[in-house]
């Protein structure tokens, strides 16, 4: 019996590591390429071990462009992303609670409107939106990047929260309502604490999407001092002439670190959800 359990554990971990290697292969490849000399990246592409360790790419990449280093990009990205995460958490929880728990009129048509906005490709709203922001004088500021998060610009998160809130037993609200709690305090004290795993998910996604997005900052930011990491990465590459591949891979690796840290931090709350979720169903 004991032995059986041990083999099962071994099998579990062994299987996960085997599959896991496939999962992290791309990142291993990127790290390996960032350490190869330029002349080896594509000639010796299949190998994960450089013949010659070239740490210089990290320094060369970080130096960036002219006076503009990745320090600037990281500060900018951190600021923008933090604001977007806060904004998304703020708007998605409030709006989702409204849709999931409050029985107001026009709820369904408005919900449909929200879902429909998900279905129009960004490419065709890009230009009208640019003109709108341009006329508001928001171009070349962070406002077009941050403000949409606060006003529920990504319905994905609202919909996600709605689904989670609908999964929470209504008896809890009703009990609180009997005790004379206001709708807002039901939201704040009863529902919100029970959605911790969902909140962690929203935080992880909105962080990653914002961190990774280059189209929005590219279109709305002109001053290079405002550029974000994703833009910085893209500035190494020019297929019509010489691309700086090794520094680009190096900076790609560095830019993944904050994402991993954020993930590691928030995924703890996925675990803690166990206790929160088990509050008497």
């Amino acid at each position: 019996m004991m032995k059986n359990k041990k083999t099962r554990t071994l099998l579990y971990h062994g299987g996960i590591w085997a599959l896991g290697f496939l999962m992290i292969y791309p990142i291993l490849w990127t790290i390996a390429s960032s350490l190869k000399p330029e002349s080896e990246i594509f000639r010796n592409a299949a190998s994960l071990i450089p013949t010659e360790w070239n740490w210089g790419s990290y320094a060369q990449g970080w130096e960036g462009f002219g006076n503009l280093t990745f320090t600037t990009f990281f500060i900018n990205s951190t600021f923008v992303t933090t604001m977007v995460v806060i904004g998304t958490l703020f708007s998605s929880t409030l709006v989702a609670f409204g849709f999931a728990r409050v029985n107001f009129r026009f709820r369904t048509p408005l919900f449909v409107c929200m879902i429909v906005t998900l279905m129009l490709p960004q490419q065709v709203t890009l230009i009208p939106q640019y003109i709108l922001f341009h006329n508001l004088g928001w171009v070349n500021t962070y406002l077009p990047l941050i403000v949409p998060a606060f006003i529920g610009g990504i319905p994905f998160f609202i919909f996600l929260m709605i689904q989670f809130i609908r999964g929470i037993p209504r008896e809890l609200d009703e009990a609180a309502y009997m005790d004379g709690a206001s709708t807002f305090s039901i939201f704040w004290r009863v529902v919100l604490p029970l959605t911790t795993p969902a909140l962690a998910t929203v935080a992880i996604f909105s962080f990653y999407w914002t961190w990774d997005d280059f189209m929005t900052p590219l279109v709305y930011l002109n001053d290079t001092k405002l550029y974000t990491v994703a833009l910085g990465l893209q500035m190494f590459s020019d297929p019509s002439s010489v691309s700086a591949w090794a520094p680009m891979f190096a900076m790609s690796v560095v830019s993944i670190v904050p994402q991993l840290l954020v993930f590691l931090f928030f995924q703890k709350y996925l675990v803690e959800g166990i206790t929160a979720g088990s509050v008497k169903g």
Binding site: S91, G98, F104, R107, L110, T117, T125, P148, G152, P155
Partner: peptide, 26 residues
Amino acid sequence: DLIGLGFIAPWLVGFLGFIVGPMLVS
């Protein structure tokens, strides 16, 4: 209604201010 609209206000503002317009223009 008011409570509901209050909760979804952030989205409603964004929707009417920044989404509907560009969508209809497209």
